[in-house]
Amino acid sequence: MRARVRAGDPDAFRELFDEHVRSVYNHAFRLTGSWSTAEDVVSLTFLEAWRLRDRVDTDADGGSLRPWLLGITTNVARNVRRAARRYDGALARLPRQEAVPDFAEEVTARIDDRERLALVRTALAALRKHEREVLALCVWSGLDYAEAAEALGIPVGTVRSRLSRARKKLHKLVAAGRIRPPGEDREPHAGHGQGEGDREIAVRSAQENTR
């Protein structure tokens, strides 16, 4: 048997497999603690045995090749465990992915988005161009009065007055029931371009839905 295995006799390897596969499998399981991993180790062990067949000692008085196979199994299992640790370590270093929302929730959100966009269009249609620009900069883009003035090339006072007119028109639309009622209407704090009321008037989260 040793001479035949060393010579690469396919029939000898089939006999070797049939005789020792159970021992190899059990040994692999004891080393890895996983039946599925043990199956992989068995396959790799016999592939490695074929690759290392020329190392079989033919002067061993016809002794069993079982110790030789289990030695290969041990090395293979060690390499498999090491590869698994590297893989687990690589996964642990990856950034955590955000939870994927339920598809039904996504559909509902899209319907809500369409409704909000329709309300936004209604609101914008009632405003003049300059008023729409100021509203877009101060409410949806989050610019303060000075930043909006710089963006438009106009005085800060003009920004304030245009935004004030836009807000008054939107309040009239609310009173007429054409858009959702705004939240608490407050002037922006010093250094900020809009108040919370402005964001509510702009139909709640319009910034995300009008990119």
Rank of each mutant, 00 (worst) to 15 (best):
M1V: 06
R2P: 03
V5N: 02
R6G: 11
A7C: 12
G8D: 07
D9H: 10
L16F: 06
H20P: 09
H20K: 09
Y25H: 08
A28P: 01
R30I: 15
G33E: 03
S36K: 00
A38N: 07
E39I: 13
S43E: 14
L44S: 04
L44P: 11
F46M: 02
F46R: 01
L47A: 05
E48G: 14
A49K: 02
L52Y: 00
R53G: 03
D54R: 15
R55P: 00
V56E: 09
A60Q: 04
D61C: 13
D61V: 14
G63I: 00
L65P: 04
P67E: 12
G71V: 08
T73K: 00
T74G: 10
N75P: 03
R78Y: 00
V80S: 05
R81L: 11
R82W: 07
A83E: 14
A83P: 14
R85L: 05
Y87H: 13
A92G: 15
P95A: 06
Q97R: 15
V100M: 10
A104Y: 09
E105A: 11
E105T: 13
V107D: 06
T108F: 08
T108M: 15
A109E: 12
D112N: 05
R114A: 14
E115K: 06
R116C: 10
L117N: 09
A118G: 09
L119W: 09
V120F: 09
L124F: 10
L124G: 12
L124Q: 09
L127Q: 12
H130E: 08
L135D: 01
A136P: 03
C138M: 02
C138E: 01
S141M: 12
G142Y: 04
G142T: 10
D144Y: 03
D144L: 02
Y145L: 07
A148N: 00
A148H: 01
L152M: 14
G157I: 04
T158V: 07
S161W: 12
L163E: 02
L163C: 04
L163W: 04
S164F: 07
A166I: 05
R167Y: 00
K168P: 02
K168Q: 13
H171N: 13
K172N: 10
V174E: 15
G177S: 10
I179T: 03
G183R: 01
G183Y: 01
E184F: 06
R186P: 15
E187S: 08
G191W: 00
H192K: 14
H192I: 08
H192L: 10
G197E: 09
R199T: 08
E200P: 02
E200A: 12
I201M: 13
A202K: 00
V203P: 05
R204W: 12
S205P: 15
A206K: 02
Q207C: 12
Q207Y: 11
E208D: 13
